[in-house]
Design a protein around this nucleic acid. Structure first.
Lengths: 183, 183
DNA sequence: CGACTCATGTAAGCTGTTACATGATTTA
DNA sequence: TAAATCATGTAACAGCTTACATGAGTCG
């Protein structure tokens, strides 16, 4: 039940159309909550039906016509409620770790190359986050809102740092492993 | 498409019934791939239909009767194939980060208590992992299989360490924030 | 025999993914 | 005017979650 609230947040930051939201999800918010345009359109319809958002004044209700939404007071209230409400952290769910566990049983052949590929991907993501940090959060220029957003970005940076370190360590371990231990 | 492979891995480690699998998912494998008993039963049915597993000799096909499964060669082959096949990492998806982003817009009131609660939960999980490490992975007693499993556990430990550190940092930031910045 | 636990399962609903459809606007 | 792109959607399906159903064995 988080996608509607992700959309409300994005719309509060700036009223947008469905496609604009999709683009913004590909950039900032999507870094920790991704969504496709189909999800977004479906959710926009629901949010409007529930009275949390409405289309902006200049309404053209035709298909293929741009339609922008803004958040209504009820939507803002719902977002505030949700943001403050206690929620349990979701248990970890990671395919790569599962694959390593499987490799411990059926053999490690072939998995090392993908570890390298993941390492490269995480390095790239880390570099991207660090660019954003440099661009958007110069030292000593922080409003309270900036500090919160910086905090969120920090989580992203630290997570990517963790993955690059762990993958490097994993590849070191593989180098020491006996050549073929696929049973 | 990872749950069937998680089950194959668990069954290779030890043939089990549905409920035994559920218990083991609550413990070891579930630490990075959780599943409910409904998911597991459904998947066991599919895996059997596909010829990847079969019920053990002592078959009692009645409802309410225990039914244990073992992996067939085709199942092992499929697991090896899947484990080696390249897969992209999934983008990060974290509700707490999303809530902080929302809080940057609608105000931080109420969220701090939940940050504290999360910190406590992650500390507990970290302690649990460290106990397992001490118990199952004594220094210098490692088969190649143990090294892989240890590597996976290490990821869990490092991730929990990241969260405890980041949450501590976040709470520090909150302490410095102006009292009520709801808007 | 009543309550509880073990064990397997069904059903409904929601979220996310993939593929496709359709109208409007721009551009070569 | 044909093709490409912008923009909004529909449909079908797979996976996960939650609630409930049912039978078998165990214990007081």
């Amino acid at each position: 039940m988080s996608l509607p609230h992700a959309i409300l947040t994005a719309l509060l930051e700036k009223p947008s159309s469905g496609l604009e939201l999709t683009r913004r999800f590909d950039r900032s918010i999507g870094y920790f909550w991704s969504a496709t345009h189909q999800q977004i359109y479906r959710e926009l319809g629901k949010l409007e039906a529930e009275g949390y958002i409405r289309t902006l004044a200049s309404e053209q209700p035709a298909r293929g016509q741009k339609k922008s939404y803004e958040v209504l007071p009820a939507g803002r209230a719902e977002l505030a409620r949700w943001s403050a409400a206690s929620q349990d952290p979701k248990p970890l769910r990671d395919v790569l770790l599962l694959r390593l566990r499987a490799a411990a049983v059926v053999g490690t052949e072939g998995i090392e190359a993908d570890l390298r590929r993941h390492l490269e991907l995480h390095r790239r993501q880390l570099a991207e986050y660090e660019e954003i940090e440099e661009r958007d959060f110069p030292p000593d220029k922080d409003s309270p809102q900036d500090r919160l957003r910086h905090l969120v970005l920090r989580a992203g940076i630290d997570l990517e740092t963790f993955w690059t370190r762990w993958l490097t360590h994993a590849l070191d371990e593989f180098a020491e492993l006996p050549a073929d231990q696929s049973r």
